[in-house]
Simulated scan of single mutants.
Amino acid sequence: MGQQHANAKRKNGSRIALIIVVVVVVAALVAGWGLFSSKKDDNVTVVTAGIVSEADTAIWDTVNQVLAKEGKNIKVKTKTFQGGSGQANQAVDNGDLDFNAFQNKNFLKTQIASQGYKLAAIGDIYISKYNVYSKKYNSVNDLPDGAKIAIPNNPANAGRAYDVLARAGLITVSTKSGELYPTKDDVTGNPKHLDIEEVDPNEIPNLLEDYDAGITNAYAIIDHGMDPDEDSIYAPKLEITGRDSQWVNVFVVRQSDKNNKIYQEVLKAYQSKEVAQTIRNRFKGAYVVAFNY
């Protein structure tokens, strides 16, 4: 009888321990649910922005300072998607993020068309320089016949790279493909017989030892400890209100949240003189402010 009583106590204890474990796990899941979406924290609304470079956190630090100074009770946290910029759009679309700020208008259009995302741009932020880099040559004029050139492997940024090569006088292009930007099928002239390969844009700085030259986003160059101006061998002049307006980076939300008051307040703080100054000081021209303040 005593043994049976002891066994019963052990079983009851095991059940209680199991219940405690389940409760703890459920509580943890509930606490973590929506980790990257908006939530209230001590009367402050916390929202999360998707970015693709840790360097951009300096911008969001200033955004938070502006929000605090204006007494908005809003705080922005960031989540970085290194090497996975498309994932940042998916995360906004499915509600895991509140918004993102990393992509140009053409990249967004391509993502919406190919993935069916219900996203919208609600404001311009900056334009990222898009230069030609090489560790073997000092000028695009020095590139040899048959030079290997690395460019991004996503359609929009590859298109911008073809445009840069055309501006540098290395190729000629048209837009006969009907796209918003040139594709490899639009190359109508290649006098130096360049071997143009589309690769991961974030890896291009590492691949410059293997290629004669490469073109990629300024953030990838910065993340690899390079200087977008000093380390480039060709830098096209940016025409932000002209031909380059299509490459301006934008603040992106779900279509259903275009008029969300909290998001609009964050955008207003982003498009401030304080943030403009941070962009100029931090990025030394690699990012060019594309908003009025």
Rank of each mutant, 00 (worst) to 15 (best):
N7R: 07
R10M: 15
G13A: 09
R15H: 15
L18C: 04
L18K: 08
I19C: 05
I20G: 04
V21A: 12
V23M: 13
V24C: 07
V26P: 14
W33S: 03
F36A: 02
V44A: 13
V44K: 12
V47P: 06
T48E: 01
T48V: 12
T48Y: 00
G50F: 07
S53P: 15
E54K: 12
D56F: 06
A58F: 06
I59S: 14
W60S: 12
W60F: 10
D61E: 00
E70W: 01
E70F: 02
G71D: 07
N73P: 14
T78H: 01
T78I: 12
T78F: 00
F81E: 00
Q82P: 14
Q82Y: 09
G84N: 07
S85E: 06
S85T: 13
G86V: 14
Q87W: 13
Q87N: 10
A88H: 01
D96N: 05
A101T: 05
Q103A: 12
K109I: 14
T110Q: 03
L119H: 07
G123N: 06
D124S: 04
I125F: 08
I125K: 02
Y126L: 15
S128A: 11
K129Y: 06
K129D: 10
Y130P: 15
N141K: 03
L143S: 05
D145I: 07
G146I: 07
A147E: 04
P152G: 04
N157R: 06
D163P: 08
A168N: 12
A168E: 09
G169K: 13
I171R: 10
S174I: 01
K176P: 07
K176I: 02
K176G: 04
E179S: 15
L180S: 11
L180D: 08
Y181V: 00
T183W: 09
K184P: 09
D185M: 05
V187A: 03
G189Q: 13
H193W: 13
E203I: 09
I204L: 11
L208P: 13
E209P: 10
D212R: 09
D212C: 11
G214S: 07
I215H: 09
N217P: 13
A220N: 14
A220T: 08
I221S: 06
I222L: 05
D227Q: 12
P228F: 10
I233P: 07
A235K: 11
K237P: 11
L238M: 12
I240K: 03
G242K: 00
G242M: 04
S245G: 14
N249Y: 04
V250N: 03
V253W: 01
N259Y: 13
N259Q: 09
K261V: 04
Y263A: 10
V266Y: 03
V266Q: 06
A269W: 03
A269H: 04
A269L: 04
E274A: 00
V275M: 08
A276I: 15
T278S: 10
N281I: 10
R282T: 15
F283W: 10
K284F: 08
G285Q: 10
V289H: 02
